[in-house]
Amino acid sequence: MTHTPLSRRNFLTAGAAVAGVSALGFKPTLVQAQTTVSLQLSWLHSSQFAGSYIALNRGWWTEAGLEVSLLPGGPNAPVEPPVVSGTALVGISAADYTAAAVAEGAPFKILGVAMQKNPFVIASLPANPVNEPADLVGKRIGMALANTPVLQALCSLNGVDINGIDIVPTQYSAQPLLAGEVDCLLCWETDLPVAMTMQGVDNLTMLMADHGYSVHSQTYIATEDTLANRRAELVALMSGEVRGWEAYRADTDAAAALTLEMYPDAGLDLETQKLQAARQVPLMFSDLTDANGFGWWTDETVAANIETLALLGRTVTPDLWDRSILEEVHAA
């Protein structure tokens, strides 16, 4: 934290109190009074983050002395910068975005992995299905051009020639697939396919994670400085997350209902949210998390991530992942 008097963050942000305390020489080793921190989400409020809502709603963070505000993301919302600048204690990123930010000089560590399996899928219609990567050849795929490296990586992992696929630039909508402009879409398991199902359109998805695309998603990131100096807050935040997501798993419908209750202005549809919440479960929970707890990873999954990230043009080392907070949480 800076001590420049002109820094408006010192005056305005949630971290101001903490900054003041540390400036006076009291390093808070235990969170005693209510400390205000922010968690920067990666998208608009929806059941994508329902585990956090449960933790907030049931007061699990307050019990731990933490006043958490959940900052929504959006199509044009910065996620990594608020974490760098200290506006948010923790951000929800993904391994590839985190790696990119680290390459640009951001001192991030991944503290936990909410989505063990990357949510990218190839969505198609039953009449013209894409069940495995080889089916992509000769098809027109609708996707954001920005995701070309993702498709490239999938092709490399599965020995498919990307030149055999016709890439059509699309953005934010399943409409081109329904209108027949494309044969399939590169999108999220929990996003456009859910929308199509809700509109009564049968569709199928091929999860890229099942075909070697290993990129941790919805990862919790914090700066090295935070990790060194604000461990108690991180542990409190993450244990709330862990409890929240366990509760989420127990009843996704209730989680979806809570989402609508807490964010009535987000324009959400209950049935859509229920479906999204249910489809998210297999991505977040696995044998690995059953054995070790929510957010866990192993050297093997990290190695697989490093391999896929290399295909995306990102060079990272295993020390991008720091399990110490999670270990403390699960040990408790």
Binding site: G74, A174, Q175, A195, M196, A266, G267
Partner: peptide
């Protein structure tokens, strides 16, 4: 603006 993004994504 929030609702617009939501509507587009939801094919609504």
């Amino acid at each position: 603006g929030v609702l617009t993004i939501r509507a587009l994504r939801a094919l609504d």
